[in-house]
Design a protein around this nucleic acid. Structure first.
Lengths: 100, 100
DNA sequence: AAGGTATATAGCTCTTTCTCTATATATCCG
DNA sequence: CGGATATATAGAGAAAGAGCTATATACCTT
C-alpha cells in the first residue's frame, strides 16, 4: 500500500519545483564555498532565494520532502545540504507503476 | 510539469483506498441493480459504506478524484457511477517515470 | 571570547481540507 | 401525482498546511 504522506509531499508546486532543480543542481544554483552541489547537495538559503520564500519556509518544505524520503539532508559545519534520494525516488516510481 | 492537484488527490488514505477498490469492483462491492460494476462503475453509497464515511463525504472524495482526472463519473438514472480512468492513470504513470 | 553566518524552532495568521448534518435536486415507482 | 431513493450542495466546525517574523542553536572566524 502507498504511503499517502509521500503524495502529500508532492502535492505542492514549490516542492515539485525543488525536486526539479535538484535533478541538476549545477545548472540551477551558484557554486558553493563548502560542500559539493552534486555530491553533498544544495544549501537551504540558495533554495529559499530561488523559491522566493523566507528561509524558515524553505526549511519546512525541505523537511516535508525529507520526511517523505524524497530527499536526504547532510549537515556539514553550519550548512545543511539537501539532495534528491534517487534510490527512494526510483523505488517510488516502481511502486507507482506496479500499484497505482 | 506536474499538476500538483493530481498528487493532492492521491495524498489521502481514503482516496487511495477507493482507487484500489475500483481496480476490481466485483471483488469489493456487491452486485448493483442498475449499472454494471465494471462497465459503468460503482455507485456512491457502496463506496461511502465501505469507506465508513457519510455519503456527502464520499461524494467529496470522488469529486476530488474526478477533478484530478483519476476517475470518471457516469450518471444513470438516479445513480452516479464512478470508475477509474485507466487511460489517465496510465498517462500519469508515464509522466512519473519520465519527470519525477 | 565575540561576532557573524546558516539553519532550526516557536508562535502567529490565513487558507485549505476533512468531516458532519441538513437540505436541495433529480429520478424512479406505484 | 406522491413517496421513496440516490446524489449533490450548503454551511459549520475542527484540523492541517503555508507563509511570515522573531528567536534559538550551532558552527565558524578572527
Amino acid at each position: 500500500m502507498f504511503d499517502s504522506e509521500t503524495f502529500g509531499a508532492l502535492a505542492s508546486p514549490k516542492r515539485l519545483q525543488i525536486l526539479e532543480w535538484l535533478k541538476d543542481p549545477v545548472a540551477h544554483f551558484p557554486p558553493q564555498r563548502d560542500g559539493d552541489l552534486v555530491g553533498d547537495g544544495v544549501c537551504v538559503i540558495f533554495i529559499a532565494d530561488k523559491l522566493g520564500v523566507a528561509q524558515p519556509t524553505a526549511t519546512a518544505h525541505l523537511q516535508t520532502l525529507a520526511r517523505a524520503g524524497l530527499v536526504t539532508s547532510k549537515r556539514l559545519g553550519q550548512w545543511t545540504f539537501y539532495k534528491r534520494d534517487e534510490r527512494a525516488i526510483a523505488a517510488l516510481k516502481r511502486q507507482v507503476r506496479a500499484e497505482l
